[in-house]
Simulated assay, not measured.
Amino acid sequence: MIRVLLADDEAMIRAGVRAILASAPDIEVVAEAADGLEAVELAQRHRPDVCLLDIRMPRLDGLRAAAEVRRTCQDSAVMMLTTFSEDEYISTALGSGAAGFVLKSGDPHELLSGVRAVHEGGAYLSPVVARHVLTQMAAGQLSRRATAQARTAALTPREREVLGLVGAGLSNAEIAGRLHVVEGTVKTYVSQILARLEMKNRVQAAILAYEAGLVPSS
């Protein structure tokens, strides 16, 4: 069972999101918060598998709450839930350690897919957000490609292969199956890659993998 903490300052939004999550037999909402500070306190108390945080909340916004949850509850994955898709929100959310970004206006299936993906150690961007990020990347693709390739050049061939599969959105279990290794080995590779590249999370690594041309075509 995937244990989820839901934080949003609007009661009707919380009710709607809770109903969507409750429709999945493998997901359980264990706590709800109406502001960011309460979300951090409840995360520390309940240690959920996934914290689903709205970006705009009183007392402590979702971006700062995400950073604090990742600092104090390292086993809890964070996914941002918002109506906003501006560049600064996306980049700041990812920089705060969020592993996913889902729009409230998206398909309910995106929410369920995102929760499952980040729980399994993967990363998830809703299609609208993903297209937006890739469009922004495409504007400076050539220079980004050279920079990204230079950053990943120090990785071993196996590490680059794992990074490419992270960029393809595969979970640790899926990467292990693809490479015919145990999941623990993949976790070690991912940790080493993030450390060597000085990155906070898999979403940042996935973007770098795309920029470097490491993501397999199929």
Rank of each mutant, 00 (worst) to 15 (best):
R71D: 00
A19S: 14
M80H: 02
P157W: 08
L170H: 10
E88Q: 15
L165K: 06
A205P: 02
V78T: 02
L53M: 10
R144C: 05
Q141N: 13
T72D: 01
L214H: 04
V182L: 12
V133R: 05
R56H: 12
V215R: 09
D8H: 00
A195V: 06
L214D: 03
V186S: 04
C73Q: 00
F84Q: 11
R14I: 02
V215S: 09
G62K: 04
L21P: 04
E174V: 06
T156R: 06
A146E: 14
D49M: 10
K200D: 06
L194A: 06
M12P: 00
L197G: 03
A205H: 03
L63A: 00
G100F: 05
N172C: 11
I55G: 03
R178L: 09
I55E: 01
E38I: 13
K104Y: 06
A138P: 05
A93Q: 01
A212E: 05
A168L: 07
I20W: 11
V102T: 09
V69N: 01
A31V: 07
M79N: 03
V118H: 11
R47K: 15
M57V: 01
G16A: 05
E88T: 15
E28C: 06
A146W: 14
A93S: 15
M137H: 14
R202P: 00
L5A: 04
Q136C: 13
H132V: 08
V78F: 02
A11R: 15
E28T: 11
Q149C: 07
S96G: 05
G106D: 15
L5R: 05
A15E: 14
C51N: 12
M79I: 11
Y189S: 09
V29Q: 05
K104Q: 06
L155D: 00
G167N: 04
C73H: 02
R64L: 06
A98D: 10
S113R: 15
P216T: 02
P216Y: 04
Y89N: 03
Y210V: 03
T83A: 15
I13H: 06
A130C: 13
A117Q: 15
E183I: 14
R131K: 14
F101E: 03
G177H: 07
L111C: 00
T152S: 01
A154L: 08
A15Y: 10
T72Q: 03
Q141V: 15
P25K: 13
V30F: 10
G184S: 13
V102S: 02
M79T: 04
S218N: 14
N172H: 14
H46V: 07
A43D: 06
V78I: 08
R144F: 10
G169N: 09
G16F: 08
L103Q: 04
A65S: 08
K200V: 14
Y210W: 13
I207V: 14
S105F: 07
E198I: 08
A146F: 13
D35P: 09
A117L: 11
T147Y: 12
V181E: 08
I55S: 04
R158V: 09
L170C: 07
G121F: 04
D9K: 07
M1Q: 09
G100A: 08
D75K: 10
L94V: 15
V29E: 05
L52G: 07
R3G: 01
L179M: 13
S85M: 10
E38G: 06
V69Q: 00
D26W: 12
M80L: 14
F84Y: 15
A168M: 09
I27M: 07
V128F: 14
